[in-house]
């Protein structure tokens, strides 16, 4: 443990320094707020070394610690102890390739909307032409020539507008067809990206499995040593026991916030965990 791994807590009027900080019975903030302060460099209430990834899993024991992803946590513990997955380079290579991918857009929304609007416009204008045509015929049959001629002019205008609308619809349909063909290529690229994402996820899963295997025996042994439990394996341990065991095996510079009561005081917890402790 580095000598820098000390913790300074400034709360209200009082200050607490050292590896074992016992805040039990004080007006300290609740445990989840304390752990947030540990993780927030800008939060002056707790000054300590920057927590590593493993702290996300074991930094808060008890309280509102939430669900524990045991496989992820074991892998993080292994990494904190310097273990590296055998497929690490493969993961990095694939992740780099994935990061470099930038598949083209396949958006057809605007083209689809244009087709729909052009289609609706044609329908509307066609109905208008039909109704004008009916009117011209009716006027003619009624012998109202002047009115029929005026209506005929309207009909000609409407027919011209319909023809324009039909041209626009054809253009919109062609544009959509072209966009569809382009989107096919873009989707091929997205499909390849998805395959790569799956490969990266599989490699990462393998990494975690290998890393977890590397520390499983130690973690299970730590489970047995946790005060107040009869569990013998991480898999069977309650979350408090599991986090304590994982924290004992992990290398931790930042303090673990203890909301659960398994140790008589903070100093006992520091001794058992070999990590700085904030006892809330």
């Amino acid at each position: 443990m580095s000598p820098a791994a000390t913790v300074r807590v400034r709360l209200g009027g009082g200050g607490h320094d050292g590896r074992a900080v016992d805040l039990a019975g004080t007006e300290a903030p609740p445990p989840d707020e304390l752990v947030a302060a540990v993780r927030d460099e800008d939060d002056g209430r707790v000054r300590c070394p920057t927590p590593g990834p493993v702290h996300e899993h074991v930094g808060l024991v008890g309280g509102r610690a939430g669900a524990l992803a045991r496989r992820h946590a074991m892998a993080a513990v292994a990494r904190s102890r310097g273990h590296r997955a055998p497929n690490r380079e493969q993961v990095e290579t694939l992740a780099d390739r994935l990061g470099a991918l930038d598949p083209p857009a396949a958006t057809l929304t605007a083209a689809r909307e244009r087709v729909a609007e052009a289609g609706a416009d044609v329908t509307e204008r066609r109905e208008h032409v039909a109704s004008l045509r009916g009117r011209v015929r009716a006027l003619r049959e009624a012998g109202e020539e002047a009115a029929a001629t005026a209506a005929g002019a309207d009909l000609a205008d409407a027919a011209a507008a319909l023809s324009e609308a039909e041209t626009e619809r054809a253009a919109a349909e062609q544009a959509l067809e072209r966009a569809r063909r382009r989107a096919r290529g873009a989707r091929d690229a997205r499909e390849r990206r998805l395959e790569l994402e799956d490969r990266v996820a599989n490699e990462r899963r393998e990494s975690r499995a290998a890393l977890a295997d590397a520390v499983r025996e130690r973690v299970d042994a730590a489970v047995v040593a946790v005060p107040g439990t009869s569990a013998t394996r991480l898999a069977d341990a309650d979350p408090v026991t599991a986090r304590l065991a994982l924290a004992r095996v992990a290398r931790l510079d930042a303090p673990v916030v203890l909301a659960a009561r398994r140790f008589p005081d903070a100093a006992a917890a520091v001794g058992w965990l070999d990590a700085p402790v904030l006892r809330a």
Binding site: R187, R190, E191, R193, L194, E197, D198, A201
Partner: peptide, 8 residues
């Protein structure tokens, strides 16, 4: 048809 892990 989906084309990303999140969409899937």
């Amino acid at each position: 048809v989906t084309y990303s892990r999140a969409a899937r």
